[in-house]
Design a binder for these strands. Sequence first.
DNA 1: GAAATGATTGATCAATTGTTCAGCTGTTAA
DNA 2: TTAACAGCTGAACAATTGATCAATCATTTC
Lengths: 95, 95
Amino acid sequence: MPDEETIQALAETFDVLRDPTRLRIVVALSRQEMCVLDIAELLHVSESAVSHQMRLLKTLRLVKHRKNGKMVYYSLDDEHIEDLIRVATRHISER
Amino acid sequence: MPDEETIQALAETFDVLRDPTRLRIVVALSRQEMCVLDIAELLHVSESAVSHQMRLLKTLRLVKHRKNGKMVYYSLDDEHIEDLIRVATRHISER
DNA sequence: GAAATGATTGATCAATTGTTCAGCTGTTAA
DNA sequence: TTAACAGCTGAACAATTGATCAATCATTTC
């Protein structure tokens, strides 16, 4: 049995992806870099909602950002997340 | 962008594994078949709590069960879940 | 049958969560 | 300097969640 710390870290990782909005953001960013407004429009949620989620994704080191003037461009910071989505997609397609 | 149904199914999958108790149950079952009481004792949680979680895991087809008298033995029903845990473990070990 | 055991269930409760709203910061252009 | 724009933030709210408790079911043993 993995130690408590590992379990917590694993749970935290899955926790990020369990929310549909966050999942959509991550999937979108796996294809291209995007700014907050682009994401908000694509997913039909408010800028504020996106911004809140980006803070979480940033804190957990899932995304990185790049500022250009007043725009903030986000992209994935971790290729493992794409792996997770791939494996999970295989899972649901066979269940 | 995947359709709404796929996103929901993906989120649901990650949702199961985001809870430490549920994650510990799944990890334990990936090693051996266990009954409710075994799991409860191993994880130091109540039988009732385990039973509630087993219902969820059963509903989402993550575990299967086998009755033998008054005992119910649970085991994993899906090898993809072990893959997910493997990939996630690699992720956290490198972050 | 009654008691004991393993497991399940429903109700309840505190804690957590994601969104909204309003106001804010920082940057650009007039 | 003002207005407009892109993004961030904290408070507040409803909704969801996971554990606990008590009661119950199902099976075995006495």
